[in-house]
Write a protein that binds this DNA or RNA. Structure first.
Lengths: 238, 238
DNA sequence: TGTACATCAGTGAACGCGCGTTCACTGATGTAC
DNA sequence: TGTACATCAGTGAACGCGCGTTCACTGATGTAC
């Protein structure tokens, strides 16, 4: 993947200067997703990945920072859309919440590099749309609203302040799950869906069995992880 | 702090070669605690902070990595001890759990740099005692045991598998709290102790009011945070 | 139909920087005779 | 009591590296006359 034996890349024809821009975005996305420590990505790495001179990037982005910012914004929108799509078929508030949260967690675990850079605070804050602008509010807001819907359905009085805090707490719980699962894969983790289920059960007060069904529906073919850690324990560390 | 106007440092007298070692550890600890992005710490930064030639470090540590590892081990032990000390006066299992978890969370929020490097996955895994060796098990184990104690006290049957999962889930919740609180300080956060209280209430099934009292006892003089984000929003981010 | 010219899409070499690491060295201080 | 020597605790200069950024350039291709 790093060792590109392809011909040394032909310059794009006249009208198609935007092609390289797209390639830069694609390569950056690939590297952020692939690298062990995506926060160490450099401009020259991107240039090499595309097969272009480092200076060529400046024609399309002012900075590596601008390029990364662009890619992170795409990833953030992807995640937000994924959550909305997952929740779209929901008939009940609880279905909505479960679908939303399961989508969030699965995306985070399936995209550790992107998750870490986008939400895990691995990049300087000014590069991260979620931190720099209020973008995170949208994601958080959807969780708050969805959880509030569940509570309201159960006849609890609407209380914006409590709802906000409850949603925030649920988000932190899911984030903690994803973050530790990604960063400490050497621990013996139970199946992820069990953890999602229990978390949602705690935060909604609904029985785990009921939630488990909804989680299963949200992702029919949850991939099995080997017992005793989903990542093969990495380097030994002397 | 970076601008040391002190005299250019006198070489240590004969028998006291270990003095520099201690200074290196101290400076590294200070930098990991102080830097905005502690994961970018360099060997030369440490040397400058101490006021010594970069090469001098090699007499005491094989590597910047070895030095960081050493410091992180100290921090980890500090945290573990803090939790144990906090729990020591506990009369009831619930007191133990609350004291332990409050200590963990407060330490994490009071030491964002150390927390991020030690637990937040901001450093290459082989440097982090918690990842490289099973050290994290100890911390996790104490939470598991403490939570199991609370459940057992309520007459629930002992079930190691369930206990383990419950403890793990509680840890992930606390971690998520600390991590998001530290990384996204621009969000409007409720008082930290309220979040700790609610988390523990959810995970123990005990009423929030009861927990809140114990949290208050665990840290009598909890510092007030200004409403609307505990960190002054940082750089603007264009 | 031919040709001069403008433009587009990038290139290649160079710069200065901070980094980790090496290596021969220095100069104070304790110790053996 | 004096002195040669070993050691300790570090120094200073140098190395090669990868990095971000700049700048004058190149060469293909479309357009005006």
């Amino acid at each position: 993947m790093a060792d590109r034996r392809t011909a040394p890349r032909r310059r794009n024809p006249r009208g198609q200067g935007e092609t390289l821009r797209a390639e830069l975005v694609e390569a950056t996305a690939r590297l952020l997703a692939t690298l062990d420590r995506p926060e160490t990505l450099t401009l020259r790495q991107v240039a090499r990945e595309v097969g272009v001179a480092p200076a060529s990037i400046y024609g399309h982005f002012s900075d590596l920072g601008a390029l990364i910012q662009h890619v992170l914004r795409l990833r953030y929108e992807e995640l937000a859309q994924l959550m909305n799509e997952a929740a779209a078929p929901a008939a009940e508030p609880l279905d909505d919440l479960v679908a939303r949260c399961a989508a969030y967690t699965h995306w985070g675990v399936d995209h550790p590099g992107e998750y870490g850079t986008l939400i895990g605070g691995r990049l300087p804050p000014e590069l991260v749309p979620l931190t720099a602008h209020g973008a995170g509010e949208e994601l958080l807001g959807s969780v708050i609203a969805s959880l509030a819907g569940v509570r309201q359905r159960r006849g609890e009085p609407a209380d914006p302040e409590r709802s906000r805090q409850a949603g925030l707490l649920l988000w932190t719980a899911l984030h903690g799950l994803v973050a530790l699962y990604n960063d400490h894969g050497n621990l013996p983790w139970p199946p992820l869906d069990d953890l999602i289920t229990n978390t949602l059960s705690l935060h909604t007060g609904e029985p785990a069995a009921k939630i488990a069904q909804l989680v299963a529906v949200a992702r029919p073919a949850a991939p099995e992880r080997p017992v005793g850690g989903h990542r093969p324990a990495g380097a030994d560390g002397s």
